[in-house]
Design a protein around this nucleic acid. Structure first.
Length: 866
DNA sequence: ACGAGTAAGGA
DNA sequence: TCCTTACT
C-alpha cells in the first residue's frame, strides 16, 4: 500500500543488487522525519550519459568487449541537446545502463573509438539530486511502501518518480552536531607520537557536547573509566557508542580527530571486538583517503558527516605558535582549557583512588574540551558551510569536505539540466595540461589597481561596487551558451549574446536577488530592534554570506583549470570589463563631473571594485569636522560635503549600466597614501571615528609588534593632529620608541620584538632559509628534537634577532625567545630601530640612526603599549 | 590548493 | 636576482 512520507533529506548512496540474474543499482536516501530515522530504497533510477553516435555504432563497440560492458546498455534514446560553451546544438544518443561504476569504463571505450561523450562524469547520487531537483536539508515527499516501521526508524521503498521536493520554500532543519574528545592515560613526558604508535594506554574519559549551530549551551556528557581494567574500558566504550546512537547526531565534530581521537578510538574498540562503524547509518566504517596533491585524510561514516576542525583553522595564528585546542580556543573564543597541575593520567588515578577533588577536576577538564570543540565549530565556519549546503541542496557529509566552488557548481548544473544544456566535463589529464600551458603563456589578468597619485588627500569619499563581478555577469549576460563564436578579438562587452538570458546570468540573478532580499530583512530587523534579534540575524547573516560565497566561487570556477566550468575567455571578459570600468570609465566620468562643477573632484585611488575620490570644496577645512561622530548633516560645512558626495554618486548612477551600483563605503577628512605604492592606505573614518589602516607595515604580522605599534602611533599622529606641528609630534613618537628599544632591559623587550614566521616544509627543503627556520633549527638543537618530525607541529615559529657581526645572516642570529633568554643573548637593538626608522621614512619622518641613539631618557615601554 | 596583484626583506 | 612571506 502506498503511503506519503515527508522527510528532510540528509545523505544518499547506492548499492548493487541482483534480481533475476540481472545487476541493478539501488539508490538509498537517508533522512529524518521528526526524530525518526528514514531510509528510502529507490528503484528504477539508472545511470546514463550521452554519446555523439548512432545506437548501432555504440552497440557494435560495446559488444566487442567483455561480458560486463556488453550487458551494461539497457535502453537508448535519440535527443537534441546544446553544449554549454558556445551553445551549439547536437543530436545525441542517451545511453541508459545498469551499473553506475561501469560508466567510466564504457565512456573510455567510446572515446577510444573517437566518439564524443557528455555528462559521463557526474556521480550517480548527484545525478539523482539534479534530475529530480531534490535538495538535501530540504523537505522531500515520497509516495512509497513502508517495509519496516519502529520507534525510531522507518524504511520504505519507492520508484524514483515518486520522489520530489516538497515545496520551493527552504527548510529550516538544523542538523545536530556532536563534539567529542577522548582522554588517554598517558605519562608525563610521553609524546602524542609515542602514544599513537602503540595505542596501548587506556582511554580514561570520553566527553561529548551536542546541539545545533543555534545552541549556546550544548547538552553534554562525560564518561569516565572506572578503574584500570579491560572490563571497565569495554564498558566505557559501549557507553560512548550508545550515547551517540541515542543522541542521533548528523555531524560528529572533533579537534584533530583525524590524527588522534578517531584512530585511537578505532584501535581501542577493536581490542574489544567493536568498531566505530556501528555509528554509521548505512554499511560499515569507510576510511576514505581523498587523494590530492597534499593528501587530506578524512574518515567517513555513511549518513553522518565527520568533521575535524583542525584543518579549518586556516588563517588563525595563535600567539603560542602552535595550533592546539587550547591555543585556538583562546584566540577564537577567548576561552581556554581547564589548567592542570598534574598530568592527565595522574589526575585520573588520583580520582579513581578516591580524591573527590581530583575526580571532579578530571571531569571538568574533559568536559571543557568537548564544549570548546562544540563552540569552535560555528566560529570556524562549519555553520556557514552547512548554510551553503542547504542553499544548493548538497549533502553535508560530502559538502563539508568540498570547496564552496564545488557546492556552487551543483546549482549551475541544476539550471543547465533544466535547460537541456550539457553539463561540461571535468578536464582529462591532457586537457588540464593544455589549460595550464595556456595560462602560463597568457596569464589571466585580474583586478585593476590605481596607482595613488598623491601621498595625502583631504575630504575623500570611498565608494565600492556592490558585488561587482557577479553584477557584470548579469549586465552583459555572460555565460557559456551566450558566448559568441570567434569573438575573442571583440571588446569584452560584445562577446556575449544579448538574449536569450544565459544560465550563469540567470543563476547570478537568483543569487543576488536572494542576497539583497536577505540583507534588506537584516537591516529592517536591526532598525526595528525586534525582540530577540540575535537569533534571527545570525541565521540570515550566515545565509547572505553563503550567497556571496556562492556567487564569487562560481566566478572563480571559470578560472579554475581543474574544474568543469573553466573557460579563459569567460574569466578574462569579466575582469576585463571591471578593469575598463576602473581604469577608464570612472576616470573619465569623474573628470566630466569635475568640469561641470565649480569645485574639483579627483579620482585618487582604487582597487578592483573600489574608488577613493577627493572633493576639493571651497572654504572647507579640517577643523570644521571636529563634531561628534558619526558625521551627520548638522553644520553647514558638513552638509556641503555630504551633498557633494551624494551628488557625485547620483551623477555616476546615471552613467552606470543596469545592475552596477556604486555604494558609499566611508568618508574621511584625511587619508595617507604613498605615491607608487598600491594596496596601502590609512585614514580616520568620519562615519565611525575608527582609524583604518590597510596594507602598511602596521598591519603586517611579519613585523615586530613594537614596530607595528610605532607605525600605528605615527599614522595616528599624522591623521588626527590638526596642528601645524603634527610632523614634529609624530617625530617625537618615533624618537621615544627608538630610545625605548635601545635602553630597556631585554626582559621587557622580548615579547614586543618577537615575530612569528611559518614553517611550510621541512627545514632541509628551504632553498633560502628564513629567520623562522634558523630559530627553529637552534631550538631543535637545544632541545634535542628531530627537525623532520617537529616542524609540522608549528604554525608560526617565534623568533628574536640577536646581536652578532653585521655580515652574519639573520637566520643564523634568530632564536626562539626561550632559547634566547636561556643563553643570555643580547638583542640586536639597532636592527629593530632601523626597521622602525625605515617605516617612518615612508611618511616623511626622517630620523637617522645617530640621532635616534642620542638622548639619555629611559622611557618605560609601557607608555607605548596601550 | 581559490584567484591575481602587489610590496618588501633576506639570501 | 631569486625566494619567501603577507596583505588586499
Amino acid at each position: 500500500m502506498n503511503t506519503s512520507i515527508d522527510f528532510v533529506l540528509l545523505d544518499a548512496d547506492y548499492e548493487i543488487y541482483v534480481r533475476d540474474g540481472i545487476k541493478k543499482p539501488l539508490l538509498r536516501l537517508w533522512g529524518r522525519s521528526n526524530s525518526k530515522r528514514v531510509e528510502i530504497r529507490v528503484s528504477g533510477f539508472l545511470p546514463y550519459f550521452y554519446a555523439e553516435a548512432s545506437e548501432e555504432k555504440i552497440r557494435k563497440i560495446l559488444n566487442k568487449r567483455g561480458e560486463q560492458t556488453k550487458d551494461w546498455l539497457i535502453e537508448t534514446f535519440r535527443c537534441k541537446k546544446r553544449t554549454f560553451f558556445g551553445g551549439s546544438s547536437r543530436i545525441v544518443t542517451q545511453l541508459i545502463g545498469n551499473i553506475p561504476f561501469l560508466v567510466p569504463e564504457i565512456k573510455q571505450l567510446l572515446q577510444q573509438a573517437g566518439i564524443e561523450v557528455h555528462e559521463a562524469d557526474i556521480p550517480f547520487t548527484r545525478r539523482f539530486l539534479i534530475d529530480r531537483n531534490v535538495r538535501a536539508l530540504h523537505p522531500v515527499t515520497v509516495i512509497g511502501t513502508i517495509i519496516k516501521q519502529e520507534n525510531d526508524i522507518l524504511i520504505a521503498e519507492a520508484p524514483f518518480k515518486n520522489i520530489s521536493q516538497k515545496t520551493e520554500a527552504s527548510s529550516d532543519y538544523q542538523p545536530l552536531l556532536l563534539a567529542f574528545d577522548i582522554e588517554v592515560d598517558h605519562k608525563q613526558g610521553e609524546t602524542i607520537h609515542e602514544l599513537l604508535l602503540v595505542k596501548k594506554r587506556r582511554i580514561t574519559a570520553i566527553s561529548m557536547a551536542w546541539g545545533t549551530v543555534e545552541t549556546e549551551n550544548p547538552d553534554s556528557k562525560v564518561i569516565i573509566l572506572e578503574n584500570d581494567s579491560d572490563i571497565a574500558e569495554n564498558a566505557l566504550l559501549i557507553k560512548f557508542l550508545e550515547t551517540v546512537k541515542q543522541t542521533k547526531p548528523d555531524v560528529l565534530l572533533s579537534f584533530n580527530g583525524t590524527f588522534f581521537d578517531i584512530p585511537y578510538l578505532i584501535a581501542r574498540l577493536s581490542r574489544y571486538g567493536k568498531s566505530l562503524g556501528e555509528l554509521a547509518l548505512f554499511t560499515g566504517l569507510q576510511k576514505d583517503i581523498i587523494k590530492s596533491k597534499i593528501p587530506v585524510e578524512s574518515y567517513k561514516l555513511k549518513g553522518r558527516a565527520v568533521i575535524d576542525l583542525l584543518p579549518k583553522t586556516w588563517g588563525i595564528h595563535p600567539i603560542s605558535g602552535q595550533k592546539t585546542l587550547d591555543s585556538v580556543s583562546e584566540e577564537v573564543l577567548g576561552e581556554s582549557k581547564v589548567k592542570l597541575e598534574k598530568s592527565i593520567g595522574e589526575l585520573w588515578r588520583a580520582g579513581v583512588l578516591g580524591s573527590k577533588e581530583d575526580a571532579q577536576l578530571f571531569r571538568e577538564y574533559s568536559l571543557k574540551d568537548a564544549i570548546l570543540t562544540f563552540k569552535l565549530a560555528s566560529e570556524l565556519g562549519v555553520s556557514n558551510s552547512i548554510e551553503l549546503c542547504r542553499l544548493t541542496g548538497y549533502p553535508i557529509p560530502e559538502g563539508i569536505l568540498s570547496t564552496s566552488r564545488n557546492i556552487g557548481e551543483l546549482e549551475l548544473m541544476r539550471i543547465l539540466h533544466s535547460k537541456d544544456i550539457f553539463i561540461p566535463s571535468k578536464p582529462s589529464p591532457t586537457e588540464l595540461k593544455a589549460r595550464k600551458e595556456f595560462s602560463r603563456k597568457y596569464p589571466h589578468l585580474g583586478g585593476w589597481v590605481i596607482d595613488p597619485s598623491v601621498d595625502e588627500a583631504t575630504f575623500v569619499g570611498i565608494f565600492d561596487f556592490r558585488s561587482l563581478y557577479p553584477n557584470i555577469v548579469r549586465t552583459h549576460n555572460i555565460s557559456g551558451e551566450t558566448l559568441i563564436a570567434n569573438s575573442e578579438g571583440y571588446p569584452p562587452e560584445q562577446r556575449f549574446l544579448k538574449e536569450p538570458r544565459g544560465a550563469l546570468a540567470i543563476l547570478m540573478d537568483r543569487i543576488l536577488e536572494q542576497r539583497y532580499q536577505t540583507q534588506e530583512i537584516l537591516t529592517k530587523i536591526k532598525e526595528n530592534r525586534a525582540q530577540d534579534p540575535q537569533k534571527q540575524t545570525d541565521l540570515l547573516e550566515k545565509r547572505q554570506i553563503s550567497l556571496k560565497l556562492m556567487a564569487n566561487s562560481l566566478l572563480g570556477a571559470s578560472n579554475y583549470p581543474r574544474g568543469r566550468f573553466y573557460h579563459h575567455i569567460i574569466a578574462n571578459s569579466i575582469t576585463a570589463i571591471a578593469r575598463e570600468l576602473l581604469s577608464e570609465k570612472l576616470e573619465n566620468w569623474t573628470n566630466e563631473y569635475s568640469e561641470r562643477h565649480p569645485y574639483d573632484v579627483l579620482l585618487r585611488y582604487g582597487d578592483t571594485d573600489s574608488i577613493f575620490v577627493e572633493f576639493i570644496l571651497p572654504n572647507l577645512s579640517l577643523t570644521d569636522f571636529q563634531q561628534e561622530l558619526p558625521l551627520k548633516a548638522r553644520t553647514r560645512k558638513e552638509k556641503q560635503l555630504l551633498v557633494a558626495i551624494n551628488d557625485y554618486r547620483s551623477f555616476l548612477a546615471q552613467k552606470l549600466p543596469e545592475f552596477l551600483e556604486l555604494q558609499l563605503e566611508d568618508i574621511t577628512s584625511r587619508i595617507i597614501l604613498k605615491k607608487g605604492r598600491k594596496k596601502a592606505y590609512a585614514y580616520v573614518s568620519l562615519l565611525t571615528n575608527n582609524i583604518i589602516i590597510r596594507g602598511f607595515e602596521a598591519v603586517r604580522s611579519d613585523w615586530s609588534p613594537l614596530a607595528r605599534k610605532a607605525q600605528r602611533e605615527l599614522l595616528e599622529a599624522l591623521l588626527t593632529d590638526l596642528s601645524d606641528e603634527r610632523r614634529e609630534h609624530a617625530r617625537r613618537v618615533i624618537f621615544n620608541i627608538s630610545r625605548a628599544i635601545l635602553r630597556n632591559p631585554v626582559s621587557q623587550l622580548v615579547k614586543e620584538l618577537t615575530i612569528r614566521g611559518p614553517l611550510r616544509r621541512s627545514p632541509a627543503k628551504y632553498r633560502s632559509k628564513t629567520p623562522a627556520v634558523g630559530a627553529f633549527l637552534h631550538y631543535c638543537e637545544q632541545k634535542n628534537l628531530d627537525p623532520e618530525l617537529e616542524w609540522k607541529k608549528w604554525d608560526g615559529f617565534p623568533y628574536i634577532i640577536a646581536k652578532g657581526s653585521s655580515n652574519e645572516s639573520q637566520y643564523l642570529r634568530a632564536y626562539h625567545p626561550d632559547v634566547f633568554q636561556q643563553n643570555k643573548k643580547e638583542i640586536d637593538r639597532l636592527h629593530y630601530v632601523r626597521e622602525i626608522l625605515g617605516a617612518s621614512k615612508r611618511f616623511g619622518i626622517n630620523i637617522n640612526e645617530t640621532e635616534a641613539q642620542q638622548g639619555a631618557l629611559i622611557i618605560p615601554l609601557t607608555v607605548f603599549l596601550k
